[in-house]
């Protein structure tokens, strides 16, 4: 069916523009990659350092994990590109439903 969709991509592509875009993209990916490695090291250090209590470490590395997921989605899985609005909407809705479920279990059932 794919070739039957008349509103699929435009076959005339501006190669120069594409190249410039890719170079920019590459730069972002390298920066993000470095940041992600750095954040991972921070997480390990936080977990390993004996001076912090569990009440600090757990929320802290959870926040780092969320940042990592966002980097992953937007810079490596190209969610920052155009045409990803619908997947983004469903991703966030799913995350919201999951979050509400966990909150409810934490507050209503176990505490």
């Amino acid at each position: 069916m794919a070739n039957q969709q008349p509103n699929s991509g435009n076959p005339r592509v501006d190669i120069e523009y594409r190249r410039k875009k890719s170079a920019e993209e590459m730069k972002h990916q390298v920066i993000t990659f470095a940041l992600m490695i750095f954040l991972t090291i921070v997480a390990f250090v936080a977990a390993g350092y004996e001076g912090f209590s569990g009440w600090f470490i757990v929320p802290f590395i959870l926040i780092l994990a969320i940042v990592q997921v966002i980097f992953q989605l937007y810079y490596f899985m190209h969610m920052s590109h155009k045409g990803h609005e619908a997947p983004a909407l469903f991703l966030y809705s799913g995350a919201l439903v999951g979050f509400i479920t966990i909150i409810a279990f934490l507050t209503v059932i176990w505490w």
Binding site: T101, V108, I109
Partner: peptide, 12 residues
Amino acid sequence: GNTIIWEHFFWI
């Protein structure tokens, strides 16, 4: 275990 967990899952 906890029997209420089923009720929550079921009604979610």
